[in-house]
Design a protein around this nucleic acid. Sequence first.
DNA 1: GGGGTTTATGCAACTAGTTGCAAAAGGGAG
DNA 2: CTCCCTTTTGCAACTAGTTGCATAAACCCC
Lengths: 185, 185
Amino acid sequence: MSLPHAILTALLEKPSSGLELTRRFDRSIGYFWSATHQQIYRELGKLEAEGSIRALASQQPARGQKKRYEVLPAGRAELARWTAASQDPKPLRDTLLLRLRAAAVVGTAGIGEDLRRHLDLHRRQLAEYEEIQERDFPPGKDAPADRLQHLVLRAGIDLETFWTGWLTHALAEFERIPAEGSTTP
Amino acid sequence: MSLPHAILTALLEKPSSGLELTRRFDRSIGYFWSATHQQIYRELGKLEAEGSIRALASQQPARGQKKRYEVLPAGRAELARWTAASQDPKPLRDTLLLRLRAAAVVGTAGIGEDLRRHLDLHRRQLAEYEEIQERDFPPGKDAPADRLQHLVLRAGIDLETFWTGWLTHALAEFERIPAEGSTTP
DNA sequence: GGGGTTTATGCAACTAGTTGCAAAAGGGAG
DNA sequence: CTCCCTTTTGCAACTAGTTGCATAAACCCC
């Protein structure tokens, strides 16, 4: 229920073609709302059909022909409505935690290795976020919109910090857990 | 791709009927892998059909008749396989962060209120986890399986701690952001 | 003993996201 | 000039999760 709103936000920030959007979803927006190009094209089609966006009139629509979209008033209104509406946080769903719980009954074989891998991935992501922070949010860049975007980045940083911390702790615990195999033989 | 494994884990911990599973998903397991009763019944059907679990032979199957399931060797093997297999963490997807980003272009109306509400929800969840920790993991309860389950709970606690911390910070920032309305009029 | 509530199971339709593949246009290499 | 490669767009089928509703037994209560 949020992909269209993610796209509207991206298009308001800067009118783009489907492919440009895809690239931007791989970078900034995708950090907290990922989408594949197929999803994006499908959604662009729907948004255009319902009059929320329109293709910038320049060339006739054709395959392999770049089509750049901009947001129409109806789209902006819908985004504002959605943004203001209260929403419940959706419950956590994490396979790694589930696997740990499963490991308590079928054995820990293989998991330690994957914990290390995840730790590495989260450390990289954290480093990337911190780099962005230094690059895009120097002290003094604090117009309202900057503050908001920085806040979002901060969430990413804090979240990755949580993961690296927890994974480090988990690995330490693992060293103290007896050998591999089922714990209920 | 993980609901069947969540169910297998739950059934290994204790053979249960569909409704009992549903209740357990509302409590412990659902804290990191939620599921509705419809999902659970559907999945139980599939798992039984493929020979991973079976209904404890006692009464003939009939509507309104409790049916309790247990895991068969094939199911346990599949769970062990899945648990040991490496998996990538799936990218974050969070509407609140998306809304904040949208707010940077269409205005912050309504969000502050919702931030407060989320903060309250996360605080409650954190309190609940901490209660569970005190109740179920007194010092000394550290058999391997206990350690693993405690680790999972710890993740929940740390995660809620992150959210409450970040939301508190976000609300403080919000007080310093000029009045409501669009920031790009 | 008939009527409402609770317990327990389940189907069907819908929504959202993923995967796999393909087709049109344009650009460069021989 | 034609063949291949990249860019850009897109369809179709599949998987997972959600919502809404249906049905049957059991309980209970008056």
